[in-house]
Design a protein around this nucleic acid. Structure first.
Length: 827
RNA sequence: GCCGGAGUGGCGGAAUUGGUAGACGCACGGGACUUAAAAUCCCGAGGGUCGAAAGGCCCGUGCCGGUUCGACUCCGGCCUCCGGCACCA
């Protein structure tokens, strides 16, 4: 019996070797057969890595090693998304400054990555909290400000009371803070925004050019951008000079509009309320609706409430007077914040009209003919032709009706065709210390002035106390806040808002190409050579936030002439999450620290070794799907690696028989070897390491059987074993490197070319032909590959198992799939 | 409500183009080794049914139907679960 495999010593040895020979597998020279792969920018939070995170990195490393062995030049950098609120909260709780806390966590996480045997090109490491990085956030911000893509405005914004900061729209989930879970409040504040809406159309249409992204992610982005075509229509309002503009996706139903409704936040609402003649109730109504929380306002159960302002508008088609109402269901952020109410054809308008007794005027005749509005129980479903709509009458519902309506409003000066988006501008202000300072100065005489480019970076001051007091700690730093106006030289105050950390992660993939460059943000030449990222690997939780922002900033950089590419990530692979039974709830849940169902890789590595953790993590299931972690399952991977060790030990002890390793004789073992190379190669190409591992388990068993049967030459057994080590290397690098060396390998497996298969050897000369009678399996035949149909039929008829099913019956038809199947159709 | 994804043994999963459903692993049962246990190795196993056994036969990939010589796979209609969007005009 061989000595037990000492995984700890082996892993330590190889991790040291890889570290020492790092330069040998780092390559950023001109790309030939290049491959740029990226794991998402990890956030080095206080919690340690758990195997749920580990899946991302292990898959990435297996791919990296595989691509290297395929002979591709691979760029595989890693850096840190280092800013963020947890570090600041930790500073408040423990007194450790955010920088120190973050650097400690980075060091710890790097050690965990190393202990899994993960190889990254650390020469390109970057951290977003480094001034050498965040100065370029500031530089980009100034460029965007110049072009009107960064701007300040007062707007109702999402305020998280728990985090004491504002949030972007994307960070509000179900009316709650995506991070802390606190219910989000709406506050009117002046904040900095990036004009992502300017790019809405391009971000949407660009999805068409991403064939390798999943439909899932693309759909999520489409929904989020929320494009809808329609028209803006102007209505004259009695007593006001300014017309009221509404947005509608159904301008064809214009003649069915019987009222207008304003969001209480709409400027006209305020003007009407301010009028002396207006009812006092209007101001009260506006006040009440505005105070409703976002959750109440957007919940489906919410009652539709409204108030008649007493003001009338003129219908542009009929000239009729229609009333102007205020309504709580009209959202200020979408369209123009005002709608035309068409109760006959819209559910919400219908409910509103019924509640307040407003007239209902159908303009589409349905399949059942014309309808009496008084008997309606809901809006009239789509279909039919237009009626009561002037010269549009008779037009069938559809694109033609929409086109006629838009042409009509444009011809009559009553509006224009318009595309609306759900997407809103990206709010990047955060009232926190631990982020990129926004490079702006508030001067009492010059207003808001940009920091001159030569003064960048605006550094975070070190003299900040974190006491947990309300407000931004940065605003407490006098040395930071007090400055002079770059325009007039007078005393001024610095902006104390910092940027959303998603700004940092929106362009880091470009910065890996020139991380130390002090002269420019991105290197156009290198980005031309390496970008786009060939393979991006990360969790589905970034489907909207990060990936939309990164696509946006990439386009901005392109428009600034800094890069040539439109889409940063050619292929995107979203891992399924690892789930595990949560003992406290009894349910299978996503593995996360907050749920308390995490499994630490550290303990598993100590018990079974990093290779075991890697094999099991990849073996657990297809990487794109969720998989459940099982404690017992790890043992299967552990046993397999011990069997590989055992096999290699026995192979090493075999005495050489002088045969040639190059051989390639068509023995059963050679056939198995080549079949396995083919399987593993094909599986690796589509990231299915779980089936590759299954194939390698079969291969290991096959080699062992051949060894024990003593029917193969020693050299053939050695050769097969070496092939097993090569194929297994991306998944279990340590044990394979160790045995590769002991069995005579000269170079690291990383530098050893991936085995090639011989197509003839990979296909067996004999095949099992399945014989069906009337589509049911009745027997099997062992045949030469490529046997003729007539021969197969004859053998089948003679076969003892098949004969009873065809005897005495007429064979009406024989379906023959060579080498696979024969189906005899009898009556 | 709209959009996207999924549904296969006790469990994770496999079946790449319509061609042997359940590879590989876990758990389980039996055996070998051992004084014993652990570890390891070998064998067994979807369900039902007939048979002493060898071995048959029937059913079976969420449900109902269709196409086909043949359907986990394609088509139509449903059900359930997961995810996204949603008073978005």
């Amino acid at each position: 019996m061989a000595e037990k495999y000492d995984h700890a010593a082996t892993e330590r040895k190889w991790q040291r070797r890889w570290e020492e020979s790092r330069a040998a597998f780092v390559d950023t020279s001109a790309p030939g057969d290049k491959y740029y792969m990226l794991n998402m920018f990890p956030y080095p939070s206080g919690s340690r890595l758990h195997v749920g995170h580990g899946r991302n990195y292990i898959l990435g490393d297996a791919l990296y090693r595989y691509q290297r062995m395929r002979g591709r030049r691979v760029l595989n950098p890693m850096g840190w998304d280092a800013f963020g609120l947890p570090a600041e909260n930790a500073a408040i709780a423990s007194g450790t400054p955010p920088r120190q806390y973050t650097l400690d966590n980075i060091a710890r996480m790097k050690e965990q990555l190393r202990s899994l045997g993960l190889l990254y090109d650390w020469s390109k490491e970057l951290a977003s909290c480094d001034p050498a990085y965040y100065r370029w956030n500031q530089w980009l911000f100034l460029r965007m400000w110049e072009r009107g893509l960064a701007y300040r405005k007062q707007a109702p914004v999402n305020w998280c009371p728990g985090c004491a900061t504002v949030l972007a729209n994307e960070q509000v989930v179900d009316g709650r803070c995506e991070r802390s879970g606190d219910p989000v409040e709406i506050r009117d504040l002046t904040q900095w925004f990036l004009r992502i809406t300017e790019y809405a159309e391009r971000l949407l249409s660009g999805l068409e050019n991403l064939p390798h992204w999943s439909d899932r992610v693309k759909t999520m982005q489409r929904n989020w951008i929320g494009r809808s075509e329609g028209a803006e229509i102007r209505f004259r309002v009695e007593g006001f000079d300014e017309p009221l503009t509404v947005f509608t996706t159904r301008p064809d139903t214009l003649f069915g509009a019987t009222f207008l409704a304003l969001a209480p936040e709409h400027p006209l609402s305020g003007q009407i309320a301010g009028r002396s003649g207006a009812a006092r109730g209007i101001a009260a109504f506006i006040d009440r609706v505005r105070r409703e929380s976002r959750i109440e306002r957007e919940s489906e159960a919410g009652e539709k409430e409204g108030l008649d302002t007493g003001v009338f508008a003129a219908h542009p088609g009929t000239g009729e007077r229609i009333p102007v109402w205020l309504a709580n269901f009209v959202l200020p952020q979408y369209g123009t914040g005002a709608i035309m109410g068409v109760p006959a054809h819209d559910q919400r308008d219908f409910e509103f009209a019924r509640r307040y007794g407003l007239p209902i005027r159908p303009v589409y005749r349905g399949a059942a003919g014309d309808v009496d509005p008084d008997t309606l129980t809901g809006p009239i479903p789509h279909g039919g032709v237009l009626v009561r709509s002037g010269d549009w009458d008779g037009t069938p519902e559809g694109p033609e009706a929409l086109a006629r309506a838009i042409a009509w409003v444009e011809a009559h000066g009553a509006g224009k065709g318009k595309v609306g988006f759900r997407l809103r501008d990206w709010l990047i202000s955060r009232q926190r210390y631990w982020g990129t300072p926004i490079p702006a100065i508030h001067c009492p005489s010059c207003g808001v002035v940009p920091v001159p480019e030569g003064e960048l970076p605006v550094l975070l001051p070190p003299d900040v106390a974190f006491r947990g007091a309300a407000g931004n700690p940065l605003a407490q730093s006098e040395s930071f806040v007090r400055t002079t106006c770059p325009r007039c030289g007078g005393a001024a105050r610095r902006e104390t808002d910092t940027m959303d950390t998603f700004v940092d992660s929106s362009w880091y993939y470009l910065r890996y190409l020139n991380p130390q460059d002090e002269t420019r943000m991105v290197d156009a030449g290198r980005s031309r050579a390496w970008m786009p990222v060939d393979q991006y690997i990360g969790g589905i939780e970034h489907a909207i936030l990060h990936l939309l922002y990164a696509r946006f900033i990439c386009r901005v950089l392109r428009d600034l002439g800094l890069v040539e590419l439109e889409e940063p990530f050619e292929r995107l692979f979203n891992q399924g999450m690892i789930t595990k039974l949560n003992p406290s709830t009894g349910k299978i849940e996503k593995m996360s620290k907050s749920r308390g169902n995490t499994v630490s890789p550290d303990e598993l590595i100590a018990r079974f070794g990093a290779d075991t953790v890697r094999v099991y993590t990849l073996f657990i299931g297809p990487p794109e799907k969720e998989s459940e972690w099982s404690e017992e399952g790890v043992l299967g991977a552990y046993r397999f690696l011990n069997r590989v060790h055992e096999l290699a030990t026995r192979v090493e002890a075999l005495s050489e028989d002088g045969g040639s390793e190059a051989g390639g004789r068509a023995t059963d073992l050679a056939r198995l070897e080549h079949r396995t190379i083919r399987r593993v190669t094909e599986d690796a190409e589509r990231f299915h390491f779980h089936t590759a591992v299954a194939a390698l388990m079969e291969f290991q068993r096959g080699i062992l059987e051949a060894l024990e049967a003593r029917q193969e030459s020693v050299s053939a057994v050695r050769r097969a074993t070496r092939t097993l080590l090569q194929l297994l290397h991306p998944v279990a690098p340590h044990v394979t490197e160790e045995w590769w060396e002991r069995l005579g390998g000269q170079k690291s497996l990383l530098a050893t070319p991936w085995p090639r298969f011989d197509a003839d050897l990979a296909t067996s000369p004999r095949v099992t032909l399945v014989v069906q009678v009337n589509g049911r399996v009745r027997g099997k035949l062992d045949l030469e590959r490529g046997a003729a149909e007539s021969a197969a039929v004859a053998l089948a008829q003679a076969d003892a198992k098949i004969r009873p099913w065809v005897e005495g019956r007429q064979i009406k038809r024989a379906v023959y799939v060579p080498d696979r199947l024969l189906n005899l159709v009898v009556q």
